[in-house]
């Protein structure tokens, strides 16, 4: 067994894992956060996407031991006490999910994209979400949600802020970055 330290959504965890334990299983079973989903275990579907030190990875293709010391963001880490992250809000507003199984990957991939590119065009959006399969939506609403999140975050639109902060100044600090 290996002792592994992970900072998940800002919280320190120390877990014991076998060498062969995949990061996705460590997150789901040892850390206990089940919002990250398993869809294929081949690195194709993207439902297991998390951010490791700010970069999106498919956590089925990473050994938990390799992530020792890493900071990890999962779907559970996006919303703050004050409400949904603007990307989550945009996905809800645009009906950008149905069953929700692909959501962890779609949301975190979008967060990474918008961190890198505040005004992505359709090609950039497709390039970002091409690693994530969705079988329900046909992707149309997901593209719309990414655009909506980008527009709101870039414009400092109060709607882009977590719900509880919306009455405050629009120039309040930016939403928690993923």
């Amino acid at each position: 067994m290996n002792r592994v330290r992970l900072k998940v959504n800002g919280q320190e965890h120390e877990i014991e894992v076998e060498s062969c334990t995949l990061l996705v299983h460590a997150i789901r079973e040892d850390v206990g956060l089940t919002g990250t989903h398993v869809g294929c275990l081949t690195g194709d579907c993207g439902a297991c996407t998390v951010l490791v030190d700010g970069a999106s990875v498919k956590s089925c293709s990473v050994f938990a031991v390799s992530a020792d010391g890493a900071e990890i963001t999962t779907i559970e880490g996006l919303a703050g006490d004050e409400g949904l992250h603007p990307v989550q809000q945009a996905f809800w507003d645009e009906f950008a999910f149905q069953c929700g199984y692909c959501l962890p990957g779609m949301l975190l991939t979008t967060c990474e994209l918008l961190d890198r590119d505040q005004d992505p065009d359709d090609a950039a959006i497709d390039q970002a979400i091409n690693g994530n399969l969705c079988r329900c939506t046909g992707y149309a609403s997901i593209r719309s949600a990414v655009r909506r999140a980008a527009t709101r975050m870039a414009a400092g639109d109060p709607d882009a802020l977590p719900e509880s902060q919306r009455s405050e100044s629009p120039s309040a600090e930016p939403p928690p970055s993923a």
Binding site: T34, G35, H37, I75, Q88, W92, F97, G100
Partner: peptide, 17 residues
């Protein structure tokens, strides 16, 4: 808007696994 959307969006939707 979708009922319970926030549950899924925050990773609290409970699937069988």
């Amino acid at each position: 808007r979708k009922e319970g959307g926030d549950t899924l969006l925050t990773g609290r939707g409970r699937f069988v696994d």
